[in-house]
Amino acid sequence: MPKGSPELTASRREEIINACEKLYETMSFKEITIKEIGAVTSFTRTSIYNYFQTKEEIFLALMQREYELWAQELSALSEEKDSMTAGEFADTLAKSLEKRQQLLKLLAMNHYDMEENSRAERLTDFKVAYGASLDAVRVCLKKFFPNTDAESFIFVFFPFLFGVYPYTFATEKQLTAMREAKMDFKMHSIYEIIYSCVMQLLGGK
């Protein structure tokens, strides 16, 4: 464990996660190393190992933070609103995930490798955050749509999120390949795809 106050530990963990997030905007998961992350922090690269043992743990912590922020937003929604139509809820949910592009990008990665290369306690922390997001959606559904089977909605919606990013963002190389393959494709926005899915799951009511 790193020496220092809990505040310092939390601050340095956050700095490492922020550095990883910044690099991930222009680099791929494979390109990013702990050395690369250390180069954009205010302390030595070797100090990172006091907080995270692998780069997978750092990415897992980034995804954990994204889930936590999303769950907080949904929890506030269920507390502030007394009722919502399907269209209003689909609109709000789509907009909430439109802001969480980083989460959707992370979801498109190989979770098996990320989780396998993280310590059990780090994986547990992540699962707590993931579970909180499930609960936040569940609470909204039970409050706003009591006649909807919340578990069936979740069973479809959360696995669906893993595929949103690849359908909304493509590299120039991927676009060229699809054109050369003469694929009939149209890129859609995060908002469009999620709004459509939620409306279908709620029966468009």
Rank of each mutant, 00 (worst) to 15 (best):
S5Q: 04
S5R: 12
S5I: 12
S5D: 08
E7C: 05
E7D: 09
R12A: 02
R13K: 15
E15H: 12
I16Q: 07
C20L: 12
Y24Q: 09
Y24P: 03
E25Q: 11
E25F: 05
M27F: 13
S28R: 05
S28W: 08
F29H: 13
K30E: 14
K30D: 10
E31Y: 08
I34T: 10
E36W: 07
I37P: 02
A39S: 07
V40T: 14
T44V: 08
R45Y: 08
I48F: 09
Y51T: 04
Y51N: 07
Y51Q: 07
F52A: 05
T54M: 08
T54V: 10
K55L: 10
K55F: 11
K55M: 09
I58Q: 06
M63L: 14
M63R: 01
M63W: 11
E66R: 08
Y67K: 04
W70N: 09
W70G: 06
W70E: 07
Q72H: 12
E73D: 15
E73C: 08
S78Y: 11
E79H: 13
E80L: 11
E80M: 11
D82K: 06
M84H: 03
M84N: 05
M84G: 04
T85N: 03
A86H: 00
F89T: 00
L93Y: 11
S96G: 10
S96Y: 06
L97G: 02
E98T: 14
K99E: 07
R100S: 10
L103Y: 06
L104D: 05
L104C: 02
L106W: 03
L107K: 00
M109W: 07
M109E: 12
N110P: 03
Y112G: 04
D113Y: 14
D113P: 02
E115W: 13
A120I: 14
E121M: 07
E121W: 12
L123W: 10
T124V: 14
D125F: 03
D125Q: 10
Y130P: 00
G131R: 02
D135A: 12
A136V: 01
V137F: 14
V139S: 04
V139C: 00
V139F: 04
V139K: 08
V139G: 01
L141Q: 00
L141G: 00
K142I: 12
F144C: 01
F144V: 05
F144Y: 04
P146R: 03
P146N: 03
P146V: 02
N147T: 15
T148W: 10
T148Q: 14
D149I: 02
D149A: 00
A150E: 04
A150V: 00
A150N: 02
F153S: 00
I154V: 05
F155L: 13
V156M: 12
F157R: 00
F160G: 01
L161N: 01
F162E: 06
F162R: 07
V164M: 02
V164D: 02
F169V: 06
F169H: 08
T171Y: 04
E172D: 05
K173N: 05
Q174S: 13
T176C: 03
M178R: 13
E180S: 00
A181H: 07
F185R: 01
F185L: 03
S189D: 01
I190E: 01
I193L: 15
I193D: 04
Y195P: 01
V198M: 03
V198A: 04
V198W: 08
M199K: 11
M199D: 04
Q200S: 15
L202N: 02
G203H: 09
G203V: 05
G204V: 12
K205P: 05
K205F: 10
